[in-house]
């Protein structure tokens, strides 16, 4: 049998020359090519490492995860709050059911509030980076009462929760809170805002006006304006010195609400002055209190 060769392949010398010529040309450019490939590899490696480092950093410092770490639980507050007093129920916001997380609390312990800025600063310092106490001079009013409350509770899921309320108040001689700002911070096991979706229908039905003014680029800071015609309760702690008991003061207030690094921040205020100007100042104070910026 003779070897069969396809007609088109009978003389391939021209193709052979072309191939060898092209290969030689390519190889002559090879050092330059190799150098550029090396640069690409280095750049790719650097980008990959940066992304991995960013992911690792994010994992190490969770900003808005569903489950927070136990480190959110402040262990040393009893060093300051040594006098246990009577009390009933816990403070919460009526407009955001999310803030009512403490309603699950069992075995609640109430402590006599500590008076004065120095005591407030000591407690704030013990909480490390959780709160950043505002200098009273920066407040939009002159408080005559500065106090800090602590309420601790055992939750249904077994976690321990402590709520601190840093209060600046202008109290009348008859004991009425004429103006006030309460910064309340509570350690929580779950982020209550993770499943929160603002419902426009709900807002329209209930006449609420909730807006997200943003804590930072990742976390929300919700704001609800107090409406004179609506009776949404804002409840905060007050202290009856005579009876040695903590009671809930129910009133109306403008409220900020946020979650950051394992803590729920709830800030309520009722202040005189232009509502818009006050709201702008309070938004800055709220962010400062949470982030310390």
């Amino acid at each position: 049998m003779d070897k069969h060769t396809m007609q088109v392949l009978q003389d391939v010398s021209a193709h052979k020359e072309a191939i060898i010529h092209k290969v030689r040309q390519q190889i002559q450019h090879e050092p330059v090519m190799a150098k550029s490939k090396w640069i690409y590899r280095v750049v790719t490696m650097m980008i990959t490492c940066s992304i991995l480092l960013f992911i690792a950093w994010q994992a190490a410092k969770p900003m808005d995860e569903l489950v927070t770490q136990d480190e959110g639980e402040p262990p040393t507050f009893t060093k300051f709050f040594q006098t246990e007093v009577e009390g009933k129920d816990t403070a919460y916001s009526n407009f955001l059911p999310l803030a009512n997380y403490l309603s699950q609390a069992k075995h609640i312990q109430y402590y006599a509030p500590l008076q004065g800025l120095e005591a407030m600063q000591s407690v704030a310092t013990s909480l490390e980076d959780v709160v950043h106490l505002t200098d009273p001079e920066n407040l939009p009013f002159q408080p005559n009462i500065q106090e800090v409350y602590a309420v601790s509770a055992q939750m249904e899921d077994g976690s321990k929760q402590t709520q601190f309320q840093f209060s600046f108040k202008e109290k009348s001689s008859t004991g009425v809170d004429l103006q006030f700002i309460n910064f309340t911070v509570t350690n929580v096991k779950y982020n209550p805002l993770a499943s929160y979706v603002k419902s426009k229908n709900m807002e329209e039905t209930l006449g609420m006006n909730v807006s997200n003014i943003g804590l930072n680029f990742m976390n929300p800071l919700y704001y609800r304006e107090m409406l004179p015609e609506r009776g949404y309760l804002y409840i905060y702690y007050n202290y009856d010195e005579a009876d040695k008991r903590i009671y809930q003061m129910a009133t109306r207030a403008n409220e900020f609400y946020s979650y950051y690094n394992g803590y729920v921040y709830h800030i309520g205020y009722q202040l005189d002055g232009d509502p818009q100007e006050v709201q702008e100042k309070m938004a800055i104070l709220a962010r400062d209190f949470i982030l310390g910026e």
């Binding site: 088109v8 392949l9 391939v12 010398s13 193709h15 052979k16 191939i19």
Partner: peptide, 24 residues
């Protein structure tokens, strides 16, 4: 080897230019 590799590439691709590129 160029000639044989070129033929083989052609058997698969049925295109002389593509066969050239592949062998290259």
């Amino acid at each position: 080897h160029t000639e044989q590799l070129f033929r083989i590439a052609y058997y698969y691709t049925k295109d002389l230019q593509i066969a050239e590129d592949i062998v290259q």
